[in-house]
């Protein structure tokens, strides 16, 4: 959280342009303030006795812009810590995982594209595996086991115990069950199946890992 504490003046030697944190941060705030003012441009500020909807946000946006400008200006007086270049892999995969979760949890229609709702049983494993690759240490097999074990746990925890209304199973899967099964029963059976597969994968994985170790010996 406190970059400047952990890395005093941590200039990245390989970064092509040396921009100070203050300059970049200040300019971002000025830009945000400008966007806010633009969005508020057609609203009425009113009077003190009958405040209009734009009065408070407009005052705040101007304040934010001024403070942002001051922060940016301060970078010219003393060279603060330098902005390091942003890593791409981590943030982009984490955000992608969130987007995938949002897109698959329930039916989605965006203009011409429309997706059926897949429910948690699909959304959770997808986002776990995608987001797992945000770090270079990721191992596919491990993530698959995690996904297969965590998803049914969440299904039972949120859907069955806490009774929250979260879509769990896709319609196509529910149609596979015999007529008259309750949703809870379908949920429990699917969860149990996933857990079994996870356990199978885990133990076979453990055995193959020990086999590997033995082979090395």
């Amino acid at each position: 959280m406190r970059e400047h504490d952990t890395q005093p003046g941590g200039a990245a030697p390989d970064s092509p342009v040396r921009v100070s944190q203050n300059l970049a941060g200040g300019l971002i705030l000025v830009a945000l303030a400008a966007i806010a003012l633009w969005l508020l441009s057609d609203l009425n500020a009113g009077t003190l006795g009958a405040m209009g909807s734009a009065l408070m946000p407009r005052v705040l946006a101007v304040g934010l812009g001024l403070l942002g400008a001051l922060v940016a200006a301060s970078s010219f007086f003393h060279q603060g810590p330098v902005l390091e270049h942003l890593p791409l892999r981590g943030p982009s995969l984490v955000i992608l995982a969130i987007v995938i979760f949002a897109a698959t949890i329930r039916p989605l229609s965006l203009g011409s594209v429309s997706l059926p709702g897949f429910g948690l049983i699909v959304a959770a494993p997808l986002s776990i595996i995608i987001c797992g690759f945000a770090t270079r240490e990721a191992r596919l097999r491990e993530l698959v086991v995690l996904a297969l074990a965590l998803t049914p746990t969440c299904m039972v925890l949120f859907g069955d115990l806490l009774n929250l209304t979260i879509p769990m199973l896709p319609d196509a899967l529910m149609d596979l069950f015999p007529e008259g099964w309750s949703q809870k029963a379908m949920l429990r059976v699917s969860a149990a199946t996933m857990l079994a597969v996870a356990a199978l994968l885990f133990f076979s994985g453990a055995r193959s890992a020990t086999d590997d170790a033995k082979a090395k010996d």
Binding site: V94, A97, I128, C131, E137, L143, L146
Partner: peptide, 11 residues
């Protein structure tokens, strides 16, 4: 290990 913990937090 954090490589397993953060996907759980995210989910």
């Amino acid at each position: 290990p954090y490589r397993l913990l953060f996907p759980v937090i995210l989910l």
